[in-house]
């Protein structure tokens, strides 16, 4: 299989499963989930996923470890002040940009 064919296969697999996850409950599953444990699990998964995706990978996201630490710190501080997602991202990028120039 060529590289491009492999990539398209992965794309369709990704899009297909993502659509199924959204479609199945909306079309077929029209009542509430009864199990409290399952509801709790589904409630916590987004936080767990985003956290596991972010750490430690954020430290390697810029190609400069020290600058990434600065960017991470700025993101945490900005988030603590409850700034909007976009503002947090912009501040963090700006911090990395400046840190790369200085460090």
């Amino acid at each position: 299989m060529s590289k491009l064919a492999h990539m398209f296969l992965l794309l369709f697999a990704m899009a297909g499963i993502t659509y199924l996850i959204r479609m199945l409950p909306l079309v077929f599953f029209r009542k509430k989930i009864k199990s409290r444990y399952i509801r709790s699990l589904l409630f916590y998964i987004p936080y767990a996923v985003l956290s596991a995706m972010t750490f430690p990978f954020i430290l390697y996201s810029t190609g400069n470890f020290s600058a990434a630490i600065v960017g991470t710190a700025v993101a945490l501080i900005a988030a603590a002040f409850r700034l909007s997602l976009i503002i947090v991202a912009v501040l963090s990028c700006a911090a990395v940009f400046v840190a790369v120039l200085i460090l």
């Binding site: 972010t54 947090v88 501040l91």
Partner: peptide, 9 residues
């Protein structure tokens, strides 16, 4: 770092 910073937010 943008997407990761957003995840933190």
């Amino acid at each position: 770092i943008a997407l990761y910073a957003m995840f933190i937010a």
